[in-house]
Simulated scan of single mutants.
Amino acid sequence: MQISDVYIYGNKYRLKTDMDSETVASIANFVDKKMREMQDSMNVLTTSKIAVMAAFDIAAEYLILKKDIDKSIDKISEIENKIDSILKG
């Protein structure tokens, strides 16, 4: 475990993680960017509301991508099964 200091939306956070510092910084920058996008696009006044809206947006993106990946995995399995049946004759 290592400790990484990051800044998100003007606040410093000390994180204890197994991830390398570049990955941690990249994640922190992503979250910071999302929060600033929420601030710019909405008339939200509190940091906590901005954080919740950013978390919601990030979760929505994640779930959409996960659904797409699951569909791709299913499609790959179908193709593998077809190939297996062709090869078995």
Rank of each mutant, 00 (worst) to 15 (best):
N81G: 07
M38W: 03
R14D: 10
D32M: 00
S4Y: 03
K82R: 14
M35T: 01
K33G: 00
K33R: 12
I69K: 14
E80G: 06
I76M: 13
I73N: 10
I64T: 09
D32F: 00
K49L: 15
D68P: 01
K75Q: 13
M53C: 10
I83G: 00
K66P: 01
K67F: 08
Y9N: 14
I73L: 12
S21T: 05
A51Q: 10
L45H: 13
T23A: 14
I64W: 03
Y13D: 03
I3M: 11
G10N: 12
A54E: 00
D20Q: 04
A25F: 06
I58N: 03
T23E: 12
T47Q: 09
M1Q: 05
D57V: 05
G89M: 08
V52H: 02
M38R: 13
A60F: 05
K34Y: 12
M1E: 06
M42K: 15
I83V: 08
F56Q: 09
I27R: 00
D70R: 03
V52P: 00
I76F: 08
I3D: 09
D84N: 15
R36S: 06
A25I: 05
G89T: 09
L65R: 08
K66D: 10
Q2T: 11
D18T: 14
K34N: 07
E78G: 03
S48V: 07
I64F: 10
A60W: 01
V44Q: 03
K33Q: 07
F30R: 12
Q39N: 12
K33N: 08
E61H: 06
D57F: 07
K67C: 03
S48G: 12
I3W: 06
I69D: 08
A54G: 02
A55C: 08
L63E: 05
S85Q: 14
A51T: 11
D18S: 15
I79W: 00
S4P: 00
K12S: 10
D68G: 01
S41I: 04
G10L: 11
Q2L: 05
K33Y: 04
S48N: 15
E78Q: 10
E78V: 05
L65V: 01
M19T: 02
Q2I: 07
K88F: 04
S72H: 12
E22S: 13
A25H: 10
D70A: 13
T17H: 09
V52S: 06
V6T: 01
L45Y: 07
K34M: 09
E78N: 08
R14E: 15
I50L: 12
Q2H: 07
A60Y: 03
I64G: 02
A51K: 04
M53L: 15
T23L: 13
K12F: 05
A60K: 07
I27T: 02
A54T: 00
T17I: 06
S4N: 04
K16M: 11
M19P: 01
S26A: 08
D84F: 10
K71A: 07
M53W: 03
V31G: 01
E78P: 00
K66H: 05
N29Y: 03
I8N: 03
I64K: 15
R14Y: 04
M53F: 13
Q2R: 12
I8S: 05
K12V: 11
V44F: 14
M38S: 08
